Amino acid sequence: MEPMKFWEFVSLVVEGLGYERSRIKIPTFVIMPIAHLVEWIYKLLGPYGMKLPQLIPSRIRIISCSRTFDCSKAKDRLGYAPIVTLQVL
């Protein structure tokens, strides 16, 4: 029920599924020019059948934003209480 940052949540889920957490972190300022280049190439080659790439600037902006998730409204309005905790005891 404590507020949790998005990437901390994702890390807990990934580790809970038995996968190893990625050790590589690429800064946004490094990946964004690459994403713009990929998008530009798609605009050139898209009409010739190139599939929409996964690495585009809008997606980089979304995943690089800082967010925190909080369940307090669900608790107050719906009486929500988690059955299992995300934190490893």
Score class of each variant (00 low, 15 high):
Phe29Gly: 06
Cys71Thr: 09
Phe29Asp: 09
Gly18Asp: 04
Glu8Gln: 12
Lys5Cys: 11
Gly79Leu: 04
Tyr80Ser: 02
Leu78Val: 07
Ile34Tyr: 02
Met32Gly: 01
Leu55Arg: 00
Val13Tyr: 10
Phe6Ile: 14
Ala81Lys: 14
Leu86Asn: 04
Glu39Lys: 02
Ile34Thr: 06
Ile26Tyr: 03
Gly79Gln: 06
Glu39Arg: 06
Arg21Phe: 06
Pro47Cys: 07
Gly18Leu: 01
Lys43Leu: 13
Thr28Asp: 10
Ile31Ala: 08
Tyr19Trp: 13
Val13Ala: 10
Val30Asn: 08
Arg61Val: 10
Val13Glu: 04
Ile63Asp: 04
Pro47Phe: 03
Val38Met: 03
Ser11Trp: 08
Met50Trp: 11
Gly79Phe: 04
Gly49Leu: 05
Ile26Lys: 02
Lys51Leu: 14
Val38Ile: 11
Ala81His: 11
Gly49Tyr: 03
Leu44Cys: 07
Pro47Leu: 06
Tyr19Val: 04
Phe6Gln: 15
Tyr19Pro: 01
Lys25Arg: 15
Val84Met: 14
Val13Gln: 04
His36Gly: 07
Ala74Thr: 07
Ala81Phe: 09
Asp70Cys: 15
His36Ala: 04
Val13Gly: 01
Tyr42Glu: 00
Glu15Met: 13
Leu37His: 04
Met4Arg: 00
Val30Leu: 15
Leu86Glu: 04
Arg59Asp: 01
Lys25Gln: 14
Phe29Asn: 07
Ala74Asp: 06
Lys75Gly: 02
Lys25Ser: 13
Ile60Val: 12
Phe6Val: 13
Val38Asn: 00
Ala81Glu: 11
Glu2Met: 05
Ile31Cys: 03
Lys25Gly: 08
Glu2Gly: 04
Arg21His: 09
Tyr19Ile: 08
Lys5Glu: 12
Tyr19Phe: 15
Pro3Lys: 03
Tyr80Val: 03
Phe69Trp: 12
Arg77Thr: 07
Ile24Cys: 11
Thr28Cys: 14
Glu2Asn: 10
Leu86Ile: 10
Ala74Tyr: 04
Ser66Glu: 14
Pro53Glu: 01
Leu45Arg: 06
Trp40His: 06
Glu15Gln: 14
Val30Asp: 09
Ile62Leu: 15
Phe9Arg: 02
Val38Asp: 00
Ser58Glu: 12
Gly49Ile: 01
Leu44Pro: 00
Trp40Glu: 05
Ile63Tyr: 11
Cys65Ala: 15
Gly16Gln: 01
